[in-house]
Every structure is written in C-alpha cells, then in structure tokens.
Simulated assay, not measured.
Amino acid sequence: MLTILSILIGVLTVYSSLRLTSDFSRQTQRTRAVRSSLVVLVISAGLGGMHLLGRRGLTGFTTEGRSLLISLFLYMLTLAGILYLFLRMRMILGEREQLKELAYRDTLTGLLNKNGMDHFWDHCKMSEQLAVLYLDLNRFKSINDTLGHHTGDLLLEAVGTSLQQFTCKGKRHIFRVGGDEFVIIAKRYSRKEAEQLALKVLERITRTYKLESHELFVSASVGITISQGRIDPKQLLQEADSAMYNAKQLGSGRYAVYKQESRIPSVKLLSSSRAQ
C-alpha cells in the first residue's frame, strides 16, 4: 500500500511539474521565476514524501527478510522512475528552448527574425523610449540577379556577422526582416545616440567584401525614428522605413532621421569618402 502511494506521489509530482512549465517561454520573466520556484518545491516535496513512505515501509518489514527485499526493491524502483521522469522533463524543456531559438533566429545570418521581432514587441514596455533603425543594402538586388543567389547569401551572411557586434542583451536587438533589410531596436536611446549608432553601423557595413572569387563594394542606407509616448510598432517601422527610403534616394552611405513634428525626414551623409 505504501509503495502504491509512493508511485502516486511520483506521478503527481511529474504531472504538476509539466503543468507548471507548459508555455514556459511565453510567460513574463516574473511568472517564469515564480513557476520555477514552484517546480523546485513540488519536486522536493514529492521526493521527500516518497522517502518518508519508503522508510516507513522498510521499518514495517524488519522481521521478514523476503518482504523487506520486496519493499526495498519497489521503493528504489519508484525513486528511479521519478528521477528518470524528472531528467526526461528537463530534456523536453531543453528541446523547447532549442526550438524557440530556431523559431526566433534567421538561419542565414544568425540574427533575430520576424518571429523574434514579434516576441520583442509582445514583451516590450509600451512607454519605453526606443530608437528604431531601418537598414537596407544598396545594389543588393543587382548583385543577386547578376552574380546569383549564392553570392547574395554570402553577402548577407557577411553583413549579419558585422551587425552581430552591435547586439547588446537587454539594450540593442538586431533583426533581419527581409531579403537585405535589417532593423536595429535600441532601448532608452536619444536621437543623438541613435545617430551615433547609425554612423558606426554604416562605417562597419560600407566596405569591400571578398566573397569567393568576387570583390564587391557594398554600402547601406539607414532610416531612424524615435518613439514618442506609447509605442506603436507598426508606425515606428513605417517611419524608419520612410526615412531609410529618403536616405537611399540621395545616395549611398547616408542615414535619415524621421522628424516627428514636421513628418519630414532630415538626411545626413556618412562621409564624403564613403558615399561614392
């Protein structure tokens, strides 16, 4: 009877742990912390209860050797079962995290993708000040059409590697949102800081790339907008995209800042040596 109770405790412990960790990646950081604490408590209580029942079962059969061995075997079997299920649960959670990483990452550049951006907006504070930089490579379509998609992919991979250095956990997030379009979202950035970031990005991206047998000079254009009050993701992306389009129209190596008041982008040149 005690052995059956131990098994029931083990099953209940695993079931409760799985319920607490369901949709774990979609929860807020505070909720995940609370649920993790509850999982630890549930598993500790389950193992503790099984241990007490097992000891009681063992002390009840000290006069009969055969009964003692059976009770000991079932007790150890129950413990082994719950430990196996616990390890299996950890493996399942690890696989979930890997799937989440694959779902949110662009396989070519290693940057966050559109799913990652949606996840960012879902967990972003609506009143937080953000700087949104929309980056587009110049002449990419021509390169892709002339030299082939393989060369285009190599170029995107190289650009993605260059952009990775600007990632800062909790402060700057970089996404690939289209073929040659990238978005950088920086938290708590002023206009001046956003412009400085744009300059650094352009200086890093605008250069000659050696891609197998090809040497290609590639430049970029950047559009900037700063959030004002409550965040509207769609509007911010449209404003940054509009500013980027205006920068592209005036030549390579430029960035444009979207003016909220007049709704007219102001354009600046990276440097005379770059804009060629």
Rank of each mutant, 00 (worst) to 15 (best):
S127A: 13
N144M: 13
L99Y: 09
L137E: 06
E101W: 05
W121S: 04
G152V: 12
L154Y: 11
D118S: 14
G110W: 01
D153L: 09
F175M: 13
L137N: 07
I174F: 00
I174H: 00
K100C: 07
D153P: 06
S127L: 12
G170S: 08
L147Q: 15
Y134Q: 05
E101D: 11
K125W: 06
H123F: 05
D136S: 09
T161G: 00
L135T: 02
K100G: 03
A131Q: 02
S142P: 08
L156Y: 09
F120M: 03
V177G: 03
R139I: 03
L102H: 01
S127T: 14
E157Y: 04
D153Y: 11
D136H: 07
L155C: 01
G110M: 03
T109Y: 05
I143W: 10
L130T: 08
R139N: 15
S142N: 13
L102N: 05
R105I: 12
Q164G: 01
K114R: 15
F120H: 05
E128H: 01
D106M: 07
T109E: 10
Y104K: 06
L135C: 01
R139T: 08
G170N: 13
D153N: 15
T146V: 04
G148M: 03
E128I: 10
L137M: 14
D118Y: 11
N115K: 09
Q98L: 12
G116S: 08
K125D: 13
L135D: 00
D122K: 13
M117Q: 15
N138K: 12
G148W: 05
Q165P: 00
V132S: 01
N138L: 05
C168P: 00
S142A: 15
R105K: 07
T107M: 09
T107R: 13
A131D: 07
L156Q: 11
A158V: 02
A103P: 04
S142Q: 15
M126T: 10
E101M: 09
V177Q: 15
G148C: 10
R105D: 06
G148V: 09
F175E: 01
K171H: 06
G160I: 02
L154D: 15
T161S: 02
S162G: 00
L154P: 12
L130R: 09
L133I: 03
H150W: 15
I174M: 00
R105P: 04
K171F: 06
D106Y: 06
L112N: 08
Q129Y: 00
D136E: 11
G152K: 02
K141L: 14
H119E: 11
D153E: 14
G116P: 07
K100D: 12
F175R: 00
Q164V: 03
H119G: 06
D122I: 04
Q98F: 10
F175I: 08
R105Y: 03
L112Y: 14
T109L: 04
A103W: 11
R176T: 10
Q98H: 11
L163K: 01
Q165A: 01
D153F: 12
T151N: 13
S142T: 14
I143G: 10
V132H: 01
F175G: 05
V159T: 02
